[in-house]
Design a binder for these strands. Structure first.
Lengths: 126, 126
DNA sequence: TAACGATTACGATTATATTCGTAATTTATA
DNA sequence: TATAAATTACGAATATAATCGTAATCGTTA
């Protein structure tokens, strides 16, 4: 009953590392692990292994020039976000973007964020 | 490195069944399987098993009055959608709702959907 | 009531995700 | 150069998800 597969969707652990890579830029396993360690207790080799798997899946690229390999996200944050969002829209919102937006916005959404969204809508010629 | 767990997040297969339940209302395994079969080739006992697991997780409620148990979604579609969206916002959008909305809307979004969103914004007193 | 058909219960299998220990390798340095 | 420190490679263990076959159970009806 599984679906798709053509587009590789990062797992949770993978997304955690991608977030770090997008924020830090290219980094070694050590640097990534140091960062991840500030919020989670995860072993060094666990991070290494996940990065290796991500490399196999082409979720990251790897520079092996130096002893300590340097990893970088293969796709931009924006691209990945779009893909995740589209996946959710199709699986939980019957393909309707507006339904998703309606659910996304609630009382906890700040006025600033609402403003940002208004401006985005205005910038569209629709 | 796994996260959360307090709030049960339906898996993909589970979400597929929930979508059916939200659409059909309470239904038997047979009915659910018939529906699922129109788009996927999934065995009857597979659907049954997933529903049993969902029952253990309290994702569905079950009426055992009759021979054929009747399953129903434990939570509303709206509630579940909100929870999935919040999960994604926190894990992939740094907690920013507006960023998510910006990614959600693109050239493929219809003018009607844009209108719907505009109206939603106007209905907010922010 | 006995047999049949439908349904649930149970357990096993497979796949993927996550975790980490240990070995092998490489680089630096004593 | 030999040792130590750091890093990668590898494999195994555990957890969860998804799948389905078979057995047990229940109701219907011949």
């Amino acid at each position: 009953m599984a679906r798709d597969k053509s587009v590789v969707k990062p797992t949770e652990a993978e997304l955690t590392l991608l977030n770090i890579l997008w924020q830090m830029g290219p980094a070694t396993v050590r640097q990534i692990h140091d960062t991840v360690s500030t919020t989670q207790k995860t072993g060094y080799t666990t991070v290494l292994k996940i990065l290796q798997i991500m490399h196999e899946k082409s979720l990251v690229i790897r520079d092996e020039t130096n002893r300590a390999h340097v990893y970088a996200a293969a796709n931009s944050e924006m691209h990945t976000q779009s893909s995740l969002i589209k996946d959710l829209i199709s699986k939980a919102f019957g393909g309707s973007t507006s339904k998703l937006v309606m659910r996304a916005i609630d009382e906890s959404t700040s006025a600033e964020e609402i403003d940002d969204i208004r401006q985005l809508l205005n910038s569209l010629d629709k």
